[in-house]
């Protein structure tokens, strides 16, 4: 496998006594699109900031393109794009001026591409940033991160304020960006449906750790809801490995498990003599079940 875009080993971050992130180890391969999910305050923003070296870790290491995040060279900085949660635009400038200022820092800036996107996304280059609506500001923040065609794109809730059409346009752009198979995208979002479309890997942050890090496809195949029918006492007494939650009503029970394999279905049927149906869950439901 070619060198990972981002690599972390036993990464941890504490603010005073509060341990926000604990013992995270992960790798981001080129071409990965990673969706980061977590409750508010779970540490998504902190994780993204640690990754790019905005804040030093209190434990472990993290590196981007093989270089420690805290010591990123200018060359590597030009390969990274970041969209922060709160926009950092300069209100006094016009959209075009803001773009030109940021563009001037990068050796390769695709002006035509950005001009085209401004047109498609409805961002007026002559407008004063002070007069833009929240959605337009967010679009501009995204454009500022796209212009230098970064190989690693990190986005922190990039579409929270965009309407569905704008979100779709943004997703299409991400699809285009990931076509070459070389660019990696890491984005955190509450809009689970967007992540479901685009991500191939999912990280779920819970209790300062990665409760899940793996393929989205595997996640959907592993976390399922079993509909079990059998005698009430049998159901009550059943012990199922990897069980997340269960709900029983008479002789009918639903159980959500986190490590399902097809063999499990046959096993349960055989061992307890019950009827087992498997229901696959969407990402939002999986998230809710993992947090129960």
């Amino acid at each position: 496998m070619s060198d990972p875009a981002v690599q972390a080993s036993h990464l941890g971050k504490a603010f005073g006594t509060r341990q926000v992130l604990d013992d995270l180890s992960f790798e981001v391969a080129p071409g990965d699109v990673i969706g980061v999910l977590g409750k508010n305050g779970a540490g998504k923003t902190t994780l993204l900031e640690l990754m790019l070296g905005f804040t030093p870790p209190t434990a472990g290491t993290v590196s981007v393109f093989g270089q420690a995040s805290q010591q990123l060279s200018a060359g590597n900085k030009a390969r990274v794009g970041f969209v922060p949660q709160q926009d950092e635009l300069i209100d006094q400038l016009s959209v075009a001026d803001q773009l030109k200022v940021i563009a001037s820092f990068y050796p390769h800036w695709d002006g035509e591409f950005i001009d085209r996107l401004c047109g498609e996304w409805g961002v007026n280059p002559a407008a004063r940033i002070k007069s833009l609506s929240v959605g337009e500001r967010q679009k501009l923040s995204i454009l500022l991160a796209f212009g230098h065609r970064p190989e690693l794109l990190v986005l922190d809730e990039p579409v929270a304020s965009l309407d569905p059409m704008a979100r779709r346009q943004f997703l299409e752009q991400l699809v285009e960006a990931s076509m070459d198979g070389n660019s990696s995208v890491i984005f955190s979002s509450h809009i689970v449906s967007d992540i479901e479309r685009l991500a191939n890997r999912i990280w779920i942050l819970k209790d300062a750790r990665l409760a899940w890090q793996g393929d989205l496809d595997s996640l959907k195949e592993c976390v399922v809801r079993l509909h079990i029918r059998g005698g009430a006492e049998t159901l009550e007494a059943m012990a199922i490995s990897g069980e997340l939650s269960r709900r029983r009503d008479g002789d009918f029970m639903t159980v959500v498990v986190r490590d399902f394999t097809p063999a499990m279905q046959a096993d349960l049927r055989g061992r307890h003599g019950v009827d087992v149906e498997v229901e696959s869950l969407g990402l939002e439901e999986i998230f809710l079940e993992l947090h129960r």
Partner: peptide, 13 residues
């Protein structure tokens, strides 16, 4: 590319 763009899904899928 066509399919990924049309349905707004990851091309790798």
């Amino acid at each position: 590319r066509e399919l990924a763009l049309k349905h707004a899904v990851n091309p790798m899928t």
